[in-house]
Structure formats: structure tokens, C-alpha cells
Simulated assay, not measured.
Amino acid sequence: MTADQTSTPVDVTLVSGPSGAGSIDDFELFYARRALRLFKARLGREKLLDLLAKDIEEGNAALRESALASGGRFTGGTTVLATKGLKAGEFMAWMGEAFDDQSVLLEAHPEHYVMGNRTDGTVHIVENVGPHISDFSMGSWSAEAMDWAEDAAELLPEAEFPYKRASNLFLADGTIVGRVLIQFGDTADGFTSNLTVYLPASCPEDVLEHHLRHFAVEFRNWIEVAGPAQS
């Protein structure tokens, strides 16, 4: 192609064939999820962690470095989801039981590798934080965990968003590498989710951006599973 020629995007349209509803992108997403479910199940938790060991070591080191460089300062961002056909209390009740079901937790996002309750009340998570695969813990959703969030600019009125959870995210050595503040409030036909993540201030902007996208994917999928479960 010469310098004065412009590239014309190629567009492919599905005309006929499959009888089921959906686009080619929808079909691809279904098969990608099915393949991931198969590989994760075949590998199991321990083999998956062995496979990702080097990535986890590098990811934890990067987040630890960012946390130390930030000196306890965090930058926050919020993903907002609007749901119809399900109330906040119903979703929170479902979430309370979902963390006992490993398959539901892992399938919510392609980059969920480990997620589940520990006996001490924390949650063990191995997932991407931006480009980094990290192995960290999320603290228990206790009243004490809300202390740091009381002065957060993102804290919403109790009357409108009565369902709130807050927690620190920390590495095995205790380094706090993030925080989450999730808040849910009913609307006339459903509920609104305000999902805030805080990452070390020195993290590149795209790391925060990708975790806001991460929230959108995982909570959308959890909400869609919760809906039929409550009917």
C-alpha cells in the first residue's frame, strides 16, 4: 500500500445460518468462556497457581513498589451500574452465599484465577490488577472495615445507599495495595451499584482504568446470575 492510499476497514455481517439469537461477538464470548471454564477446571487451583507463580511474584512486586512509593496515598475511581428487575437487598443476599461457590466466583471474569473464603474471614484472590497478576487478600466486611471509608469523598448517603461494604486489599506481608468501597441502593425498578476501587497513587492511570472495567464485567455477570436465583 502506498503512502497516499487509505486503509478501508473490513466489515463482516452475519446474514444467515445460526438460528439462535446473538451476534458473532456473542458466539465468540460464549465459546471463550466455555474454554476458560474447561482449562481452569482441568488445572485446578494448585496447578493454576504453579503455572502463574512467576507472574504473581512479578505482579506482587510491582504493586508493593507502587504502594511504598505512594506513602499511603490512594487514587480512586467508580464504576456505576444500573440494574432492572432485581433489588439491592436481593443481590446482597445472593452475594452473601456466592462466596461459598468457587465456580460462580471464577466465572464472573476471565482473569479470576482464585477467589474464595478463608477460615479467618478474609477472601483469597488471585486476579489481574491492570497488567499485573497479583495474589492478595480482601479483608472481612466488618463494621471496623468501614472506618477508613467514613471520610471518603465517594461515600454516599445512607438513606439512598443503605447497603455498603468496604475493605482493604493486602499482600501476604501486610502491604495494603488497594481498597474497595461498594454501595447499593434501590431504584423504582431495580437498584444502582456504585463500585469504587482505590489503588496506590503512583500506579499508572491505565491500571485504575482497567480495574474499573474489571468491576463492570464481574458485577454485571454476578447480577445476571443473581436475578434468576432470586425468582
Results as ranks from 00 to 15, higher is better:
A32P: 00
R37N: 07
G89E: 14
I125K: 00
D26N: 06
H132Y: 12
V126E: 04
I56K: 01
G121Q: 09
Y198W: 14
G59R: 02
N128E: 13
E158H: 08
G185V: 10
D11P: 00
V197G: 07
S231D: 13
L105S: 09
Q102R: 14
R118H: 05
Y163S: 02
A88Y: 04
M115W: 05
M146C: 08
A216R: 15
V114F: 01
G185S: 07
G72T: 14
G178P: 05
W141P: 15
G76A: 15
E218F: 09
D101Q: 14
R45N: 05
P200K: 00
I176A: 13
I133F: 04
T192D: 09
I223G: 02
L52E: 05
G227T: 14
S103D: 15
D173K: 06
G22T: 10
P228W: 03
G44A: 04
E46K: 05
S7F: 14
G174T: 12
D135T: 10
R73H: 11
R220L: 09
G190K: 07
M95S: 09
P157E: 03
A149P: 01
E160D: 15
K40W: 00
E57I: 10
E127N: 12
F27Q: 01
F170H: 06
R220A: 15
D101N: 15
D101R: 14
E158K: 13
E107A: 14
P110D: 08
N221I: 08
I133W: 00
E111T: 13
G174N: 07
A152N: 06
T13Q: 14
V217P: 00
D135W: 01
E107V: 01
D11H: 11
S134C: 15
A172N: 05
G96N: 12
H124I: 10
L199G: 03
